[in-house]
């Protein structure tokens, strides 16, 4: 929605972190995102909801320039992180992604040990001076990922040997270990069973303390449970954006209402 007053109402939980203006994304000739404007705040969980193929994941991947890895993808408009345009020619996507971490739909631990999985980011970014430093970073990350107690005795076992929910929390710990400022989560629970989902959701709420969290989900219940702000995407457009409670109880746009009541999607 272009109505900025609404956004102003919604932002109470933190200061502004990311602001996107008139973002368009093209895959070859087809346009996947049409003129999206969004503000994302610190210490807030922002949820992107909408039916499949509405562009919510595509937009999420614009925020840390993961779309750069797809040849035919083209992004226009501005996305600012702390006031700096992340699509500026001078910006190195590698440096950006260190600040804007990401967790994916399917848990994707590397075929390495649990320890090496978490230490991977700190190692490539040079965050630890010594082995003991690194141990500390890994432990902190695993604690923040709420998985330390489960794996502390088998840090050197392969990460692929964990259960699905544990793997996803390991991936979150891995993302947290590089000390990002924003954490993007692309349907992090879609491959998990309900118990694991509950654990991850609880974790997301804790993560809000330290990061700006953006989560894509197609479960409206999940959005309602974990997020403070919600953006509803439909056919590549941002239909409505506001405080979660308001979106679910008092949607302004008829399309949002149709989706929430289950008539589209």
């Amino acid at each position: 929605m272009k109505d900025m007053s609404q956004i102003a109402n919604a932002v109470e939980t933190g200061t502004n972190k990311i602001s996107a203006r008139d973002v368009n994304v093209f895959y070859g000739d087809s346009q996947a995102i049409k003129g999206v404007d969004v503000e994302i705040s610190n210490n807030t969980v922002t949820a992107f909801i909408g039916p499949s193929g509405c562009g919510k994941s595509t937009f999420l991947r614009c925020l840390n320039r993961m779309n750069d890895t797809i040849d035919i993808c083209r992004v226009t408009g501005t996305i600012r992180l702390d006031g700096e345009d992340i699509y500026d020619k001078r910006v190195d996507p590698v440096q950006l992604r260190a600040k804007v971490g990401m967790v994916f739909q399917k848990p994707n631990p590397f075929p390495k040990s649990i320890y090496d999985n978490v230490a991977y980011g700190p190692r490539i970014h040079g965050l630890a001076r010594s082995k003991s430093d690194l141990d500390e970073v890994v432990e902190r990350a695993l604690r923040r990922g709420a998985i330390w107690n489960e794996v502390k005795d088998r840090l050197y076992a392969p990460g692929t040997g964990l259960s699905g929910g544990q793997q996803q929390r390991l991936c979150i710990a891995r993302a947290v270990a590089t000390e990002p400022e924003v954490l993007l989560m692309d349907e992090p629970c879609s491959a998990l069973d309900p118990i694991a989902t509950a654990q991850v959701e609880e974790l997301i709420d804790e993560l809000r303390e330290n990061f700006a969290v953006v989560i894509v989900t197609h479960s409206m219940q999940q959005a309602a449970r974990v997020s403070q702000n919600t953006a509803f995407f439909h056919l590549g457009e941002l239909v409505e954006y506001g405080e979660t409670g308001q979106i679910f109880t008092n949607p302004q746009d008829p399309r949002t209402e149709s989706y929430i009541t289950g008539r589209i999607g």
């Binding site: 890895t69 971490g101 994707n108 631990p109 590397f110 991977y120 970014h125 891995r174």
Partner: peptide, 27 residues
């Protein structure tokens, strides 16, 4: 080697060669 592993590595801010050497090749 599944693309998700590469994505995971890029998402952490690894360069392409770091991804190849430390994730893709070991896998």
């Amino acid at each position: 080697v599944p693309q998700s592993l590469r994505d995971g590595s890029y998402g952490l801010g690894a360069t392409q060669s770091e991804t190849v050497r430390q994730v893709v090749l070991p896998a």
